[in-house]
Design a binder for these strands. Structure first.
Lengths: 230, 230
DNA sequence: CCTCAAGTATGAGATTTCTCATACTTACCT
DNA sequence: AGGTAAGTATGAGAAATCTCATACTTGAGG
């Protein structure tokens, strides 16, 4: 992770998502701009995050570590999106691992220093409530809809979401579990995409060669295109 | 809806879910206890709810009215659970229809009178944040897991959740959409349950005759057994 | 009274997806 | 070096689920 000392860029991100309006005090001066390179770990469970982050650019994925030690993919985040807000608000909340899919820019506020202040800040609390509420509505709606689509359609969207730099490199076992299908079937459909020319196999990974075809397939799926609607 | 003037019962419900600890002021005296009879409408979209409710006993379901006028089943709530919290917090949030599945008891706080106070109450706001965050974790986890189960298993759980007084009376069209399966297939599985003796057809409805068998089938499904874990 | 929309109901054949069996490879542990 | 766990890979048959076609019933509106 790198701290980006570019005041101008920082202010642009703040303005783009009205970050400053989510606090009752002047945040623009104290927040720092971080850059997490693609594939780097943003939060490593079970460590608690050091900062309250606000994702302003990039895509991330969230993993849970199961009781048996296995790692399960559970969700994706795109801007605008808080990271670490549950840990800030709920001391008992478990924490999850968050990884950058592509380069991710975040506005960061050190928790140790600001936790007490934030827990007393009604502007901030109301804004988090709205954020969580909208995320909820989205989840509820999409989860019951997504089941209705065939794996090809959901996988197409999934590949576009998780590919970085034209390369799709997710672990099949995790993806099968996330998409709720068998490992076997996932491989069939992947092989199909290769046969159709949408993907090209490179070692154990795949190169996206026809993003448009995938997009056409995924078109109807109300995919996680934003943590809340923009 | 009836207002229940039973101070003793009210206090018991408050204690059972630590309702009073979610506010910084003394709520026990001003909250009223409501009883919504089975099948009655608790909140009717697009009207905004008059009170902030807290479900302490009973089960409810939530509907969305689609653009085309159709009604879609989208979620279920069980105690403890706020109803109307999004409308209180987010003036722009759409509102949904909430219906009692069985008799439902709610603690009620008139919004007009308390909205301003609640929006300034950090204890309340933090508690709603935690509540929403946990609901989120639950949704995320269950939604990606549920797909992995067969319709028989999910339907078994669904029937147990939505039946009232041993009668299952949901509309097949809505259920098929909610469970993400075709109408046709839903009817096949329902017919199967009848053949197996789990259900008994009564007109267009079904009587649950072997709840245990259904429970066994549903056992593994991490069903919505609570809005947050108790 | 007629018509239309929505919900219910059932059959038949086509697709999607699953389970199980079996191998090969890689990383890590001892 | 040997062993084990995890991930990858593929085949074959079975089960789950879908699409389409077709009817019947009921309630609301003209």
């Amino acid at each position: 992770m790198r701290i980006i000392k570019n005041e101008d860029l920082k202010q642009r991100f703040i303005a783009e998502w009205s970050y400053d309006r989510q606090f009752s005090f002047d945040i623009a001066q104290v927040a720092q701009l971080y850059l997490f390179p693609a594939k780097s770990i943003i939060v490593q469970a079970p460590d608690r995050p050091r900062d309250l982050l606000y994702l302003v650019k990039g895509k991330t994925k969230l993993y849970d570590t199961l009781a048996n030690g296995k790692v399960a993919l559970i969700d994706f985040f795109t801007p605008p999106c808080f990271i670490g807000e549950m840990e800030l608000l709920d001391p008992k909340s478990p924490s999850f691992t968050v990884q950058a899919i592509e380069d991710c820019w975040c506005l960061a506020l050190p928790m140790a220093e600001y936790q007490q202040k934030l827990l007393q800040d009604t502007t901030f609390l109301r804004s988090v409530c709205q954020y969580l509420g909208r995320k909820n509505s989205r989840n509820i709606r999409t989860s019951s809809q997504n089941q209705a689509f065939t794996l090809s359609q959901r996988l197409a969207g999934f590949i576009l979401l998780t590919a970085n730099d034209e390369m799709y490199e997710e672990k099949h076992t995790q993806v099968a579990q996330y998409l709720g299908v068998s490992y076997r079937h996932l491989l069939y459909v992947l092989a199909d995409f290769v046969k159709l020319g949408y993907l090209e196999k490179v070692g154990h990974h795949y190169r996206v060669v026809q993003p448009d075809s995938l997009a056409r397939l995924a078109r109807e799926v109300d995919w996680k295109t934003g943590s809340t609607e923009k």
